[in-house]
Design a protein around this nucleic acid. Structure first.
Lengths: 332, 332
DNA sequence: CTGTTAGCGCTTTCAG
DNA sequence: CTGAAAGCGCTAACAG
């Protein structure tokens, strides 16, 4: 079942069938109709590989993430796929597992597959890799990495803004001893958040003493331990670098019979779907992942030879739920 | 940069290059060495589409799941991809969103891409679709759907066994009023669990009065409401059709100031990663998703023209954590 | 063991 | 507006 059979049945050339399928306007409605009915009669489906081989475009997009089991990613992936599907693109998702070597491998595999674009949604990414993709002439979009350039778009997340929203919320509730649970500093996404915390805390004349900073490894267990370590410092509120560590902190406080937000307030970061189901529900800074996905896809398929990549900016949103309240100390 | 350039540089024919790449043993180590060095010198990467076109095999596997944002799936997907990567396969994941029409679309897209196999890890699946894939000659593996046949393997999950483990655990703790939170009965996976509960409860001479059965929609919110509805019936323990609804039940009890497992025991199903982090940690029936993924992949790539698909069986494992304890009533 | 050659199924000039 | 024909890059007989 190939294009020739269709051509034969419709009594036209294969070229005409091809044009019809690709909706070229250089085909008379009448002939197009003949072709379509032949296509339907034979239940013909074009061979995508032959198509790719001869046209050079695969209609496949690559999506590189760190780890699908990290609750940050499923929403992103789902949104990306949904939009891609609408645009008739297939998606190949690959996990780097935060491993640079594996990242290189992922990119090469995608390049071999002649993908029409690569979205790199992990910040652990060597600049040299980006260059390689650019050399291959494949559009690329990244999250917080480098400056947009030829066929290279970048989506900037406003972490500082998010941290600022969180801190101002807390300051508004009269908190004055604010602790921070960091993520792994080998990860850029964690560094950026930490730096933002330092900067904004200082802006607000809050102490950023190192005793108020603990490492939470961006995990529930890590957040749990970090909170325990922070407790002797008597913070009135804790800001966590991501929701998982905030959830760990919540557990630690629960175990110590401390009440949230009565005794201490907690703010997370990311707004993973679970954060609306913690006890109490977590106040957190939302990263609009569906929007990021949509922008990434848009950036990829709108990148043409002519215009260079763009720099997009996405802002966060503070979601106030039940884990924050007035400062206990100031009330007393 | 194509195979011809490599052939030219290595002073051999393109056929030899092809053979070398495909590790045919019909190539002298000496010539192979020449070829490899040419390949390296030119940084040559074979065009996968040309390869697919001429060989008929794409080295791509399709993985169909219901919804990547359902915490059941990420582990499964990750394991599948990891194993696929080892075997040099690419994976295209598609979400059906529990929608039969969309499922048909997913399958067609995969078929168009000439995938070398399709793993359908959602039970919402019309038998006619399976037949279609079989007609296309593409290996297929499903989860709890139909009987294995030509190029068609099936992985059976022992839900009854899992439910039995849970119920016997509870009976061993002297529970005698066991409630069940069902999943949406339009989903086969939920029906199967419900039926197993009915059967095994009867085996154990437990009442299965409809007042002890509530609908939890397989979600946290649903589990919450279901638990509230169940409360007047004074169950001593509750078995939920999945972990999400068990977590909802946990929240409801917390809200009502009831202690788990002091006042009531809760058992979930699936063992999603979050269930080890609830308060208290959830006792649940684990579905070994990584093993399922591994088997699925194995089934797909071992399916040859010669031997028919196989029927695999995977058993569950009861993970006893902190949400179950001796029956309060029998203690008093 | 290696080379020649005919496709795989489609797109895309180039003519007409 | 439509057709003929030349590839796209690789694999797999078939010879030798």
């Amino acid at each position: 079942m190939d294009i020739r059979k269709v051509a034969a049945r419709a009594k036209v050339s294969t070229a005409t069938v091809s044009r019809t399928i690709n909706r070229s306007d250089a085909v008379t409605p009448a002939t197009a109709a003949k072709v379509w009915s032949a296509i339907r009669a034979l239940d013909y489906h074009p061979n995508t590989h032959a198509r790719t081989l001869s046209s050079g475009k695969s209609q496949i997009l690559g999506l590189i993430i760190s780890d699908i089991t990290n609750p940050f990613f499923p929403d992103l992936v789902k949104a990306f796929e949904t939009v891609a599907l609408e645009r008739h693109y297939e998606v190949i998702v690959t996990n780097t597992e935060y491993n640079p070597e594996r990242t290189v491998l992922c990119v090469h595999r995608l390049l071999n597959r002649k993908v029409d674009g690569i979205a790199i949604m992990t910040s652990e990414m060597e600049p040299s890799l980006i260059e390689e993709v650019q050399r291959a002439g494949v559009p690329i979009v990244t999250l917080d990495t480098g400056k947009a350039g030829k066929k290279f778009s970048n989506i900037k997340l406003d972490y500082s803004g998010g941290i600022r929203q969180a801190i101002q919320h807390l300051v508004g509730l009269h908190h004055d001893r604010l602790a921070f649970i960091r993520g792994p500093q080998r990860l850029k996404s964690a560094q950026v958040r930490y730096n933002a915390y330092i900067r904004v805390a200082k802006e607000n004349a809050l102490t950023t003493s190192s005793s108020l900073i603990a490492d939470g490894e961006h995990s529930i267990e890590g957040g749990f331990t970090a909170m325990l370590n922070l407790l002797p410092q008597k913070p009135t509120a804790v800001l966590a670098s991501n929701d998982l560590s905030a959830i760990g902190a919540l557990h630690a406080l629960h175990n110590k019979n401390l009440h949230v937000p009565g005794d201490i307030s907690i703010v997370g970061f990311d707004d993973i779907s679970f954060s609306r189901h913690t006890q109490p529900n977590l106040t957190t800074v939302r990263i609009p992942r569906a929007e990021v996905a949509r922008l990434a896809l848009e950036a990829l398929i709108s990148t043409s030879e002519a215009e260079p990549g763009k720099e997009w900016s996405v802002s966060t949103e503070l979601v106030i739920r039940m884990s924050t309240g007035p400062c206990a100390r100031s009330r007393s």
